[in-house]
Design a protein around this nucleic acid. Structure first.
Lengths: 204, 204, 204, 204
DNA sequence: TATGAATGAGCTTTCATTCAT
DNA sequence: TATGAATGAAAGCTCATTCAT
């Protein structure tokens, strides 16, 4: 399994880079630190990636695979199509925990996108757009059934995603504060959104 | 007026640093670039700030003044207390534009907060917390009047703020796309939230 | 004398670089070695020259000044115009010693010219061409007086220069061998050339 | 025929190294580039040569074979012994073209000789000295016949070689200029030298 | 106080060389 | 024997910081 082994070095570097970039930011991280974390020589990094920026793109490519159609979004879409569903909420909760673990990576990618056009384009086309489309479609179906208000579907999707995002970020920041039960909090966030987008009888 | 002059130099540096940090990020920016942008010698920077990080804190301090109780939040609080108010919406819209102009700075501060504890603390205590308290209080009043659902006030506030934040970020990213009228979009976002938090008669 | 001092750092670097490049070649030399030789910090080099190659160009520029119309060539031109002149020979000898001291630098510049177009162009236009023109003109005058053969003037000049160059190089390489007296050798080289280019009565 | 194959690999490496060294200089060339040019793995180079410098010596050894008694020098020696001979001139011309094709290699070897004693010694003993001896002997014979001036034989030989060398280099550098016919130029160079060394009746 | 040349530690990157396969 | 991934020392270069003026 030579190929597997070859790519295993690459994987080690990617994993180390995710860790170090997440902790220090892209510019704040050093290749020597990444090498050490990966347990390889610094020169080895540059046999696998042309430049330091190349590592970032490598991370992105590997991230695209796992974020392109994240399970949480599929669950959310299902929840939207079927109306609120408590079994669904617990699934969403579970998957939100996964997202939280990757929060530093996500923040890194979204932030660095400002400075690296290639990164921005890939994130937009391969991550943000597919997710948004997925949710927009589900939202559109409910709109057609007159169950959701006839607002802009994208906007409704964004409202949902950013509410969840805001909740996750807040949990991180205010970690030591007295907060309500996590599952309860998630339910409240989803309830607010669901009720917010529900159509009145005489709407539209 | 030497003091005035000194502080004017300081202001020039702060302004230049905001520009350069916003464009390149904190680590990506160089003090020499900031000096050039400010029209001062590189050494001069270090008469006003001990270290590069000191400039970031300087920015933060000057930002705290303008963000501590930003007009937009006051308007939002008023809107919450009085119920939806169209005159209020147009004010919110106006102030959201101001926010948008400072978006790079805000993103910078929020992002760098991860890596610099002092920055994080100041943002939390001087910006995030006051804003959240302001909104939470207004929300609390409506809750007491049984007009808002008896959800966690902080959570409701976060849902509102992050919906608006998400909307602003999306506008930036998807700038060239066909989007609905900005004012209409803002109204939709606020409507979703307002309806989402409104109490049913038999709630709680 | 601040200006003098500022440029003195630059001069120190140039002088050190001439020494190190001459000893190790351009690629074989390191900037750290140059810095050490110059007695400055390595970083200082890059305040004065953008890149390592920039140092080479800096050397060239300073060399152009001293080689553009080297005294030896003026003496040679005079010798050519007046016919052989023993006082002239001793002057040429003297100046040839100067050239010899700068031999490593000259070899460096001529050799590196192969790899750096900018260097090549400057050497050609600012050093080689003026020298060749100077000699060609003097040769031309004698040709017009029917005292020199009607060969190509440039070619005659090249024959002279390269004979001298060959002699100097040989002296270096075969330094420890028994060689004839230097002044005598020089006279012989010049005699060969002078007799070689002299016109017969019935020439042309 | 493993030995034959091995040596063929070695030859491929030598040929590639000549090309790459000629184009980039010794220090400027990389072993990876040589490997690629040779169509072998980088590691393979080090099965045939201990170090990078070893390749240079390998080149030198293979060059010694072809330069030790180059045909052009034999032709020149014959020309000297017999006096000017037009059939000889055209042969010299032909062989000078061969030299020109190997000019980069020759320049490389002569230049690098400065930095590598072993290279210098081999060039001196195996190339320069034999050539010089060959010409000196022929010159000596004419001197004995009172047909050449009683100058130092080595010096006369050097004058001849460097005139030709200077001519070849000049052709390269000033390639795009209007120059006289190559054969005519060569004849002029040789005429200048021949007439320059010819004895007057009452010489010595 | 403001300057900007100098600093030197530390960065990203290169490359001759090694070695398990 | 040939391979090419891995190595790590050292390269060129950057930049926050200092300090004499």
């Amino acid at each position: 399994m030579e190929i597997a082994e070859a790519s295993s070095t690459q994987k080690k570097i990617i994993d180390a880079a995710i860790k170090v970039f997440s902790e220090k930011g892209f510019e704040g991280a050093t290749t020597s630190e990444i090498a050490q974390e990966a347990g390889v020589a610094e020169g080895t990094i540059f046999r696998h990636f042309d430049t330091k920026k190349g590592i970032l793109q490598g991370i992105l490519i590997s991230a695209v695979t796992s974020f392109q159609r994240p399970q949480i979004m599929v669950s959310l879409a299902r929840m939207i199509e079927k109306g609120e569903d408590h079994s669904c909420v617990s699934m969403v909760k579970e998957q939100l925990d996964v997202i939280e673990q990757q929060l530093p990576l996500l923040k890194l990618l979204f932030y660095e996108a400002q400075f690296h056009t290639e990164v921005q384009e890939i994130i937009l086309e391969k991550i943000a757009r597919p997710i948004l489309d997925l949710l927009s479609q589900s939202i559109g179906k409910r709109k057609n059934m007159r169950e959701f208000r006839c607002f802009d579907s994208n906007l409704m999707a964004i409202t949902l995603i950013s509410s969840l995002w805001g909740y996750v970020i807040w949990k991180q920041i205010a970690s030591e504060e007295e907060t309500i039960d996590e599952e309860e909090a998630l339910i409240q966030v989803l309830h607010i959104w669901l009720k917010g987008v529900q159509a009145n009888l005489h709407d539209c």
